[in-house]
């Protein structure tokens, strides 16, 4: 019974954390390149509707997942053209992208409301998945859950260990210096923005294909904004973002289990994830890590290459 509860609670925590992790890992790359895209909620919704629609019509969740990433990337492309080529204000454009995505996804998805799709299949590894407790928790999730962790690892490796990753970071710190060294600032920022869009699309697809396998208008319910906050919370570092996503997901689920166990108003529990986030943020920024709590220096600044 206890083992079963642990498995069930862990599964719920993983589902609550995974969409945040996808979106935050993608946005982290975007921000490290110096671009602030606040349109994640809109890109997520487009990913959710595209993933759902394609899975329902073709019957293939793989095509659905690809379509979700593509839909997120297309939205990000619109953002990139506006802000990187046409030099529009990034904050305003990002907010517009969110509002646009909410409306467009509702329009495209109106015919899909009320139709369920089968949830993504859970992975089954012979031998490993049967292990008590850790089997189903570690080896019994669906493919997107593993992809989100692999994506985070990939981002960490890319930024720290590869030449293009270092280029991207340099561009985020000082686009002008990077440009004078001959680095392709705009091209790298385009690619980073597209990657962020695709990751947000995957986060949306996780919602509409695995977490709650259905399409409903506005089903992200503000998760994109939480993911944006997680990037700051993780001080622009992939593994800290992962820890933040799981902390937030964990407290979200545990507060539901704690309701009724203590005689406190329900509102206190629903505050818990946000209070925990603020507490950790305060500790990080006041503690010995203080010096490393730094945003990319050129974050949100438009760059026009001098000819």
């Amino acid at each position: 019974m206890i083992a079963e509860s642990i498995v069930n609670i862990s599964a719920a925590v993983i589902s609550a954390s995974t969409p945040l992790l996808f979106v935050a890992a993608g946005e982290l790359v975007v921000e490290r390149s110096g671009v602030l895209n606040l349109g994640v909620e809109g890109m997520m919704l487009m990913g959710a509707v595209a993933g759902f629609a394609v899975t329902l019509t073709t019957g293939s969740p793989i095509l659905g997942i690809v379509a979700a990433a593509a839909a997120g990337a297309v939205m990000a492309l619109a953002f990139a053209v506006l802000t990187l080529t046409l030099m529009a204000n990034q904050v305003a454009t990002g907010l517009a992208l969110t509002i646009f995505g909410i409306g467009l996804s509702a329009l495209l998805g109106s015919g899909f409301v009320g139709q369920p799709v089968p949830a993504l299949p859970k992975l089954h590894l012979a031998g490993l998945s049967e292990l008590p407790v850790i089997g189903p928790v570690l080896f019994g999730q669906d493919a997107l859950v593993y992809l989100s962790v692999i994506l985070t690892g990939g981002v960490a490796w890319f930024l720290k260990r590869t030449r293009p990753g270092m280029m991207l970071r340099a561009i985020g710190e000082s686009a002008a210096s990077a440009h004078s060294l001959g680095l392709p600032v705009i091209r790298v920022r385009y690619l980073a923005t597209l990657f962020g869009g695709a990751a947000a699309g995957l986060g949306g697809a996780f919602l509409s294909l695995s977490y709650t396998p259905m399409w409903m208008e506005g089903m992200t319910s503000g998760r994109g904004w939480i993911a944006l906050a997680l990037v700051v919370f993780g001080s622009w570092r992939p593994w800290r973002v992962l820890a933040g996503a799981y902390l937030f997901g964990g407290v979200t689920i545990l507060q539901l289990h704690a309701q009724g166990a203590f005689h406190l108003p329900a509102q206190v529990f629903s505050m818990a994830p946000y209070l925990a986030t603020i507490a950790v943020l305060t500790i990080i920024s006041a503690g010995p890590w203080r010096g490393r709590f730094n945003a990319p220096a050129d974050l949100g600044k438009p760059f026009r290459p001098s000819v």
Binding site: A12, S15, A16, P19, L207, Y211, T212, M214, M216, G218, M219, S221, G222, R223, T252, I253, L256, Q259, G260, A266, Q267, F269, S270
Partner: peptide, 15 residues
């Protein structure tokens, strides 16, 4: 009873 503190959030309702 569990309070989701929302009228509409499919993820939270499912949690």
């Amino acid at each position: 009873v569990i309070w989701a503190n929302t009228w509409y959030d499919p993820g939270k309702e499912s949690d």
